[in-house]
Each structure stands twice: as structure tokens, then as C-alpha cells.
């Protein structure tokens, strides 16, 4: 293994939780998140000479990942919603979630799970360009400028897409607000 590969693997190792989280939020389930990570990280490795050491590796890979995700969605419009509670045939069981500490109350857990399911479904039903902006800005905390750079579009487009995405989500999740 050469120095470049070692450096790359070290950065992946250091940031793997954040990388997986973004992949999962974009893809919507563990299987697709794994495929998305593989493809985006392979592309990141191939472009690693363009990465400036000392800058934010996660945001750099997140940019590649969003483009990969949008390419997938353009090529294949089919998108499957996977419930967090229902096991898939090709899975070992329900996708395990680490519940927050105040999860002792079963009723509160059930309400939270129901909201998460509804929210994931609503997110997966958004047009991919809208979903990407929600994931980057609302869930990953990128600024409008960073999201605009990641998606290679003007800040005004981010502002507009984000608002329209939120309005759509508000309609779908009105029972929870």
C-alpha cells in the first residue's frame, strides 16, 4: 500500500461515522448506503490528488456523494422506502437504532418511531434535488454557501429548493407538528 492510499484510508477511518451517516440519510436504507459509500469513496480515492490536506474531508466526500446519489436517481427513478421497523428479506432484521436515553417510556418510543418512519418516508418521496438540500442543510448543518458549492448551483437555488422541500415535508408531516 503506498503513502497516498494510506493517507486516504486514515482519513476514512477517522471520519467513518460522519461519512456513513450522510450516506444513510441520502440513500434511506443500509444496503443503498453501503453501495453509495463504496461508489463515492472509490471516486474520492481516484480524485484524491485534488484534495487539499487540512481541509474538511467529510464535506469533500459529501460533495462527491451527493453527485453520485443524484446520478443514481436520474438513472433509476425507482426508490424503495424501507421502514425502520420492518425487516427486509435480504437483511438480518430490522435496522437497529440506538434509542436516546429518555427512551424508557414505551409510549414515547412508539411515538418517536412512528415519526421517524413517517419522516423517512416523506424524505424519500421528495424530489432528489430537494432531499439532498434538506439532508445537507437541515440534517448535516451545512451553510447555504457550502450546499451551493456541493451541488454546484447558486445560493438562491438552495434557498428556494430548501423552502419548497420544507413546505412539502410540512404537508406530509402535519400530524406531527
Amino acid at each position: 500500500m503506498n503513502d497516498k492510499t494510506e493517507e486516504f484510508e486514515k482519513l476514512v477511518e477517522l471520519n467513518r461515522d460522519a461519512l456513513y451517516r450522510i450516506a444513510y440519510r441520502l440513500a434511506g436504507n443500509r444496503d443503498d448506503a453501503e453501495d453509495l459509500l463504496m461508489e463515492a469513496l472509490t471516486e474520492a480515492w481516484e480524485s484524491f490528488r485534488h484534495f487539499r490536506l487540512g481541509t474538511d474531508f467529510v464535506r469533500w466526500v459529501a460533495t462527491i456523494m451527493t453527485h453520485t446519489f443524484l446520478d443514481w436517481r436520474r438513472k433509476n427513478n425507482h426508490y424503495e422506502f424501507v421502514s425502520l421497523d420492518e425487516p427486509r428479506e435480504d437483511d438480518e432484521g430490522a435496522e437497529p437504532i440506538d434509542l436516546p436515553e429518555d427512551s424508557d417510556d414505551p409510549e414515547s418510543v412508539a411515538v418517536k418511531r412512528a415519526f421517524w418512519d413517517a419522516a423517512n418516508k416523506a424524505l424519500n418521496e421528495l424530489p432528489p434535488e430537494f432531499k439532498t438540500v434538506v439532508v445537507l442543510v437541515d440534517m448535516e448543518g451545512l451553510s447555504y454557501e457550502e450546499a451551493a458549492r456541493a451541488l454546484n448551483c447558486p445560493i438562491g437555488t438552495i434557498r428556494s429548493r430548501l423552502h419548497r422541500a420544507r413546505i412539502l415535508l410540512r404537508e406530509k408531516l402535519k400530524d406531527w407538528l
Binding site: M1, T5, F8, E9, V12, R16, Y20, R21, Y24, R25, R30, D31, A33, E34, L37, M38, L41, T42, W45, L84, D91, E92, E95, P96, I97, D98, L99, P100, K112, F115, W116, A119, N120, V134, D138, M139, R166, I167, L169, R170, L173, K174, W176, L177
Partner: peptide, 30 residues
Amino acid sequence: ELRELKDKLQTIPVPSPKPEMWNRVMRHIR
């Protein structure tokens, strides 16, 4: 409502990756 929506979206948890996922990913890259 939009403010509440934004706050709630941040609470959606991410399940752990499938077992051995990182090994598979790194093997693929190598």
C-alpha cells in the same frame, strides 16, 4: 411549523451499518 420541522429532522437517528460494512467498502477501494 417550519422551525419545529427543522428541529425534528435533526432527531431522526441513523441505524448502525451492517456488520463488516467497512471491511467490504475498504476492500473494494483497495
